[in-house]
Design a protein around this nucleic acid. Sequence first.
DNA 1: GGAATTTGGTTGTATTATGAAACCAACGAA
DNA 2: TTCGTTGGTTTCATAATACAACCAAATTCC
Lengths: 150, 150
Amino acid sequence: MVRRKSLKGDYCPSARSLDVIGDWWSLLIVRDAFDGLTRFSEFQKSLGIAKNILTERLRTLVSRGILEAVPTGDSGSRMEYRLTAIGRDLFPVMVALRQFGERHLFGPDEEHSVLVDREKRLPVHLDIRTQDGRTIGADDTVLLKIPEEE
Amino acid sequence: MVRRKSLKGDYCPSARSLDVIGDWWSLLIVRDAFDGLTRFSEFQKSLGIAKNILTERLRTLVSRGILEAVPTGDSGSRMEYRLTAIGRDLFPVMVALRQFGERHLFGPDEEHSVLVDREKRLPVHLDIRTQDGRTIGADDTVLLKIPEEE
DNA sequence: GGAATTTGGTTGTATTATGAAACCAACGAA
DNA sequence: TTCGTTGGTTTCATAATACAACCAAATTCC
């Protein structure tokens, strides 16, 4: 069988994350969920995704605990899709992607949306830090690997 | 034409980033590049990716300025693939994915690799902050959108 | 209350992306 | 100079995705 490789068993946490949200639409759905969208039709309209694909993606995001499907309305047969606590922990990923895009993927005169803090309306950004609070870059880090098992 | 939707023109920086590195293998290649891999065969062995796919991914990562192909050896007909300055700016994305995976995708007794700072060997993590230095969460932020154009 | 519309899908079918394997030219080591 | 490795390309099969048509239940309109 020609199967798209699963990274579920990888010892690298980044790889496992990509296994969960690394496919073409999932992170965009999560982005829209952070943006307050909850309904099937809202995601569909926002993303222009095919409905069968959206159905499948919502299902797997729910099954993996990123979203929860909450029955809504009087009869409860329709769902609202909301981020779980786990799903909300993807926020730094979204911010990191945003920051990269802002820096490198827009022309100088090109407008884009901006994420600001609610209170003071100042742009949000992110830093990599050590546990003792020093801000560092990629070159200041080392990856400690798990030895290969036999 | 059935084309995988391009997000190049999206006003959302996260979406544009995903357009560049959001496909199935690209971020894993970037992860390996951060990990010091440079040669075709190294990526291929590390990822278990089909060679034709790897060829194509390396090419597009180079064309998008994430990697550069440096001729190597005596004759210079073989290449080393290295992160560009732009590519290295994806580091926060990698750390964010890692942090999510560490938190939610490993069992309590399960080992995984750890990213530490070179100097003190303390684990690295990341915070979202406002410009004036306060650490905040997703609920403390608002997205300022660009009005729709006609 | 009944009709029309929206919502939230499902089910084909076509096209694209991906994967496995075979093949190959150039290089390097022995 | 022979042999193994590197860095691919090509071909073919299968999986993922897109698009359109369809549908039942819920909601809105009159």
